[in-house]
Simulated scan of single mutants.
Amino acid sequence: MGTRLRLTAVATAVSAVVLVAASVLVLALFQRQVTDNADDLATSRAEDLAALAAAGRLPDLLTDIGDDSVGQVIGPDGSVLAASASLGAAPAVTDRLGSEDPVRIDLDGVPDDDETEDYRAWLVTAQGPDGPVTAVVGTSREAIREDVLALGLALLVAMPLVLLAAAALLWFLLGRTLRPVEDAHLRQRTFVADAAHELQSPLASYRTQLEVAQRQDDPAGWRAVVSDLLAETDRMERLVRDLLFLARQDSSASAMSLVDLDDVVLEEVARVRPTTAVDVDVTGVSAAPVRGNRDDLARLVRNLLANAVRHASARVQVACRQDATGSLLVVEDDGPGVDPGLRDAVFERFRRGDPARGHAAGTGLGLSIVRAVADRHGGTVRVADGGGGARFEVRLPRV
């Protein structure tokens, strides 16, 4: 969460800087465009007035030059031939008259009701019957500033909304991007914590037994110590093996192929029968093809069988079959069963099950591995209602 928040904050800050720079550039370009358009319009209107003056068709009062514009036509002798109301009868300009090319000038302090206004004006000269006439048309600078200010306010209002939307999008995208990394980091921390927790007890037992044997200095007693240490070593090996298997299931993909689940079940049952006096019934095993990793599926079946044999009173029933939705594997024992309130908890790592099912030796990872393998194969595992004991059902997708 901290990394995600920091990255979102940094990316949002960078976005804000980019947006501010882009807004300044847009405002500058917009101001340039508005000014150029005003100049083009003023020049065009001045050319029209000059042409009318040269043709002798000017009205005394110029009205058709725009709401934010002023105009005036000056004759060859410097007198005003026509003007808009705000410019009046006095010439707005006395120099640069008669220029062959359009000339830009500033008209400052032009009366406008009770106020004055500044204009950006253009002079255009045309040849009349009595000599050159000059048309002056100006566009209000205030009108240009108002247009730029309106865009600036719009950008100022829109920018926080854009940044907020960008931050939300960045938060979402970074969450999706960083989730695999955070999950991998969490798995690593969990693996280390689990290993440290579970290995602490056998290592402490090692030290205790060795220290006691060292103080007693009894050669005959070392045989018992060695036997106990070997038993603890075997448990530690199984624990490390299970932890590594879970780590591999969490972090890497397994090669998938077509597997006959019934063959895997029969092989694992044949492996477990010589090690237990519990009767393992396989009459319910029938064809059940699945797509998966054979070694992982064998591990799943092996752990379910080991759990069932460990808690059974006398009998374990194993069945598998294929139906319309996929393949179903069932392992059921006649032991004390699992309390309904703990049916999901038994699949947690290092959860050694319902106290009613005893405290048989185990790493507490067997059923976690079963769930991990089922999840990796797109399947599910659950504890279902049985005939008194525990009934585990694994459902895998249809091939």
Score class of each variant (00 low, 15 high):
residue 270 A to W: 03
residue 270 A to L: 07
residue 270 A to F: 02
residue 271 R to Y: 10
residue 271 R to Q: 10
residue 273 R to L: 01
residue 273 R to K: 03
residue 274 P to Y: 05
residue 274 P to K: 06
residue 274 P to M: 03
residue 276 T to A: 09
residue 276 T to I: 05
residue 277 A to M: 14
residue 277 A to R: 14
residue 277 A to T: 15
residue 278 V to N: 11
residue 278 V to E: 06
residue 279 D to R: 14
residue 279 D to W: 12
residue 280 V to N: 02
residue 280 V to A: 00
residue 281 D to S: 01
residue 282 V to K: 12
residue 282 V to W: 06
residue 282 V to Y: 03
residue 283 T to P: 07
residue 283 T to F: 15
residue 284 G to N: 06
residue 284 G to E: 11
residue 284 G to M: 03
residue 284 G to W: 09
residue 284 G to P: 05
residue 285 V to A: 04
residue 286 S to R: 11
residue 286 S to C: 04
residue 286 S to N: 04
residue 287 A to C: 05
residue 287 A to T: 15
residue 287 A to P: 07
residue 288 A to F: 01
residue 289 P to K: 08
residue 290 V to T: 05
residue 290 V to L: 12
residue 291 R to I: 14
residue 291 R to G: 09
residue 291 R to Q: 08
residue 291 R to V: 10
residue 291 R to W: 00
residue 291 R to K: 10
residue 292 G to E: 11
residue 294 R to M: 00
residue 295 D to V: 13
residue 296 D to H: 13
residue 297 L to T: 06
residue 297 L to M: 00
residue 297 L to S: 08
residue 299 R to T: 11
residue 299 R to Q: 13
residue 300 L to Y: 06
residue 300 L to R: 02
residue 300 L to Q: 05
residue 301 V to E: 03
residue 301 V to Y: 07
residue 302 R to S: 12
residue 302 R to K: 00
residue 304 L to M: 00
residue 304 L to Q: 04
residue 304 L to V: 05
residue 305 L to F: 06
residue 305 L to P: 04
residue 306 A to L: 12
residue 306 A to T: 10
residue 306 A to Y: 10
residue 307 N to R: 02
residue 308 A to M: 02
residue 308 A to K: 01
residue 308 A to H: 07
residue 308 A to R: 05
residue 310 R to I: 04
residue 310 R to S: 13
residue 312 A to E: 05
residue 313 S to N: 13
residue 314 A to C: 10
residue 314 A to S: 15
residue 315 R to H: 14
residue 315 R to D: 12
residue 316 V to S: 04
residue 320 C to G: 10
residue 321 R to G: 14
residue 322 Q to W: 13
residue 325 T to M: 15
residue 325 T to Q: 15
residue 326 G to M: 08
residue 326 G to H: 07
residue 327 S to G: 06
residue 327 S to W: 08
residue 327 S to I: 03
residue 328 L to Q: 13
residue 328 L to I: 15
residue 328 L to W: 15
residue 330 V to E: 15
residue 330 V to F: 07
residue 331 V to M: 04
residue 331 V to P: 00
residue 332 E to R: 11
residue 333 D to R: 12
residue 333 D to N: 11
residue 333 D to Q: 12
residue 334 D to S: 08
residue 334 D to W: 07
residue 334 D to L: 00
residue 335 G to Q: 01
residue 336 P to D: 14
residue 337 G to M: 06
residue 337 G to V: 02
residue 339 D to Q: 09
